[in-house]
Write a protein that binds this DNA or RNA. Structure first.
Lengths: 192, 192
DNA sequence: TTGCATATGTGCAACTGCTACACCTTTTAA
DNA sequence: TTAAAAGGTGTAGCAGTTGCACATATGCAA
């Protein structure tokens, strides 16, 4: 594994990181809406147009790449421990990604930022839902159903929609329980 | 019931209608993104600033008021026929509002507009979800559960999220079946 | 090393949704 | 009749985003 894959690659990565770092720092300081993209570009010492060559929107500056999430979802379904239901496996994944952030004190600032910025929550929901089709297919394959089975599609949609709902709830842990109680019982009487 | 409730009211209503009509006509003609708000205001013969006194956003030009939807949801839960489950009653309401549009040929243009404009679908989803809390409370009251029961909140959320998912699906009728099969079985084993 | 094609970055100007402001006109009500 | 209140106007401007023409840096080949 080459660490230094050419100066060009390294500079690109550095620029990208500088932008993301500057943006997050400014957002945490003063709030998402109070910081303009021109200011972020300035802080990272690049032109505004350059910023948009790295990040398609202002919101995307806040989130890491989600490379691997599609695979993580498929793996959660495929490689789950024997005796674990699909819904339980997905619950564990959501719990890991969402609820942990609500108890980790290092994420407090980040969490507050998300809480007070609907645009960011919407963006994150979209990132989850990008994998709706592939999760539906994985669930269908696991259950031995046709890949376009509508109940699998519905389950996949609700699971991927849930992180947003859960972290916006007053008590996220209880919300997680509620969501997966409903889905688990619904799914088990369909598939089991 | 006064038909003519003062010249002022009538003029306001006429301006509002002129804006909505002009907007829908232009959108259907050329697509949502290809029409600017300045052009819509021009077509309705008002200033751009006036347009935004009637409609808070460009998207809102497309949709009627949703006055009464909150009440319709509460009524669907409260006044349902004996022997009908809460989920079935809500299914009927969603079916009426969503699936009918998919079979009515008069709505074909409107439907295409929605299909090709994610911003409009998101806006409509938001309109449904505005009643999430009140629906959750109605469901909880009906089931004799505390008003903040997380399973009721989850059910309400998924029901109100579903119209968007359903009408975006390749086969909306099958999607409707899938969604409500899942929710119905999940809910009945919790509440029944 | 030199030279060149290409990837990357720059600055400017513009467009789009949306808002603030100061002003004018119509309607309502005393 | 008059004055307040409501509605509408036009201008100017902001913020996110993009297109364009030009500059620079890099990787590769000779």
């Amino acid at each position: 594994m080459q660490e230094t894959a050419g100066r060009r690659e390294r500079k690109k990565a550095a620029t990208r990181q500088a932008l993301a770092d500057a943006a997050l720092r400014l957002f945490l300081d003063r709030g998402f809406d109070a910081v303009g993209v021109r200011e972020i570009a300035d802080a990272a010492d690049v032109a505004t147009t350059t910023l948009f060559k790295y990040f398609p929107t202002k919101e995307s500056l806040v989130f890491d790449e989600d490379a691997g999430r599609a695979e993580a979802l498929a793996a959660a379904v495929r490689d789950r421990a024997p005796g674990t239901s699909v819904v339980d496996a997905l619950r564990a994944l959501v719990e890991h990604d969402v609820v942990r952030r609500h108890t980790d004190p290092d994420m407090a600032g980040f969490r507050r930022l998300l809480d007070e910025t609907p645009a960011l929550r919407d963006y994150r929901r979209g990132m989850w839902l990008r994998h709706e089709a592939s999760l539906a297919a994985a669930v269908a394959a696991d259950a031995g159903l046709p890949p376009d089975d509508p109940r699998c599609a519905a389950l996949a949609h609700f699971v991927l929609d849930s992180p947003d709902f859960i972290s916006a709830a007053p008590d996220p842990v209880r919300a997680l329980d509620g969501v997966f109680a409903l889905l688990d019982r619904g799914w088990s009487t369909l598939a089991g």
